[in-house]
Amino acid sequence: MLLTDQDWQAIRLTLHLASVVTLLLLLMVTPLAWWLAQTQSRLKAPVSALVAMPLVLPPTVIGFYLLIAMGPDGWLGQVTQALGLGLLPFTFEGLVVASLVYSLPFVVQPIQNAFESMGQRPLEVAATLRAGPWDRFFTIALPQARRGFFSAAVLGFAHTIGEFGVVLMIGGNIAGETRVVSVQLYDHVEALQYEQAHWLAGVMLVLCFTLLLGLSLVQKRAGWSGMKYGA
């Protein structure tokens, strides 16, 4: 037995979701990671701790509270309704928002570490050469931290693909909209269709392994040293 159309649809949807979430996270998280790496503020410790919170809560619990927050009586639901966007649960956009929360620490921490391990020295040298703050950030900090960005992208992508509990809670299992691979796989297992589950899991593993391996090879060829998580 091979994969059904629904399986392929779930695979496409999952890759789409993971790509959108990874891209958005990289964009949104870079200023935060930069701030965390540079700041002397007393807020650094509480903000760092806050960023790590999604690691602590079980995904279904995160999903449950997101369901409440995004609902008609929740604060986020009130905001989205006031903006004329309607309600987020049971939509692809809702999954994106939830995944941003869920995968946040996996993207912040490698980038923050990369910025921190670079040290102040290169920035100070650049400053003596009259490079302004924006110039220093884009020409010194970003290229220096590329390994951190790579790890962050890989971790964010992989973590979003593996996401289950959150999606289960706010997705509503709608084909082509919120039924991602993890949910489809769970459905197969719960319906005792183990063979179908094995196929889907196998295809997904091979696909993601190939993708990550390819990325790693590209990274190596580009002359960056090997993938080091959190370094």
Partner: peptide, 19 residues
């Protein structure tokens, strides 16, 4: 339709007003 994995989750969808 929005589908709960089980009747407990379906209950949550309705109880929170999302459905």
């Amino acid at each position: 339709w929005v589908l709960g994995e089980n009747i407990g989750q379906t209950y949550q969808f309705v109880a929170t007003g999302n459905a």
